[in-house]
């Protein structure tokens, strides 16, 4: 698996991926400290695991930016040509990159979710934050899977757009704005929103959670699919986008 080694050396020999990973991990843990640190008395007892995770989406965005940059900087500095020259089997090379970036994102996702849960347990020590339902395990451990899949989407968008600003804009606007705005379209809007890819990613995490202080339905209760099917659907989007990106990169002039 030399392409894995190649992409590992590339990623760790510049500084920005390190920064992205540190920021991503710190954000989720920091937000957990903020949401649990000031709780007192009855409020504190109502805290749930869900309350410790508000920073996760932000961290997910940061890792998507890192994933997209792993591709777009190669186009910006022309190293993609050196890469294709060294490994003319372009799809294999780009899949290697995807694997490395997705794996790292997954690991950061796990560090973020369990780190935030740890900090929450420390601050809200009077609340019952032990992980004892399948849904709670899914919320924490599942974060790794959601981070990894969204990184795959980010790499695919990076390959297709080839330009940092454009790719990052799409990756931030799509989950945060576009998926929420489609709601406003009459008749079909609700269905579009329920079948949007990132909505299904979070539906996988949020179904069956005790929202506690956040109130029921904070994560949206209108789910199109059961948790694991929702994750599969999200992964299907990632796979489809990646297939299009690999096809396009193989045909295009580098």
């Amino acid at each position: 698996m030399s392409v894995i080694t190649v992409e590992r050396i590339k990623l760790f020999s510049t500084r920005s991926p390190w920064w992205c990973m540190i920021v991503a991990a710190v954000l989720t843990v920091g937000f957990a400290a903020l949401t649990t640190g000031f709780l007192k008395g009855a409020d504190e007892q109502q805290a749930t695991i869900f309350i410790t995770q508000p920073g996760a989406q932000l961290s997910q965005m940061v890792m998507m930016v890192m994933a997209a940059l792993a591709v777009t900087t190669e186009y910006r500095f022309g190293t993609i040509r050196t890469s294709f020259q060294a490994v003319p089997q372009r799809a294999a090379l780009l899949l290697g990159k995807t694997a490395v970036v997705a794996f790292l994102s997954g690991v950061i996702g796990l560090i973020a979710s369990f780190g935030a849960w740890g900090v929450g347990s420390l601050f809200a020590s009077n609340a019952d934050l032990s992980i004892n339902t399948g849904a709670e395990w899914r919320l924490l451990a599942g974060q790794g899977l959601v981070f990894a899949i969204s990184a795959v989407i980010a790499v695919a968008v990076g390959i297709l757009i080839r330009q940092s600003a454009g790719a990052i804009a799409i990756l931030i606007l799509w989950p945060l704005l576009v998926e929420n705005l489609v709601n406003l379209i009459p008749k079909v809007g609700d269905d579009l929103a329920r079948w949007a890819p990132f909505a299904n990613g979070s539906s996988f995490l949020n179904q069956g959670q005790d929202f506690g202080l956040a109130g029921a339905g904070a994560g949206g209760s209108d789910f199109a699919l059961s948790p694991w099917w929702a994750l599969l659907y999200f992964a299907g989007w990632a796979a489809a986008l990646m297939a299009i990106a690999l096809f396009s990169a193989s045909k295009r002039d580098a």
Binding site: I9, K10, S13, T14, T73, T79, R81, T82, A86
Partner: peptide
């Protein structure tokens, strides 16, 4: 100029070497 400006010369050659074993 097809080199990442923040990567060292050694790292640049190292990934190329790894790609072709």
């Amino acid at each position: 100029k097809w080199v990442h400006p923040n990567r060292s010369a050694r790292a640049h050659l190292a990934w190329m070497a790894a790609s072709n074993k």
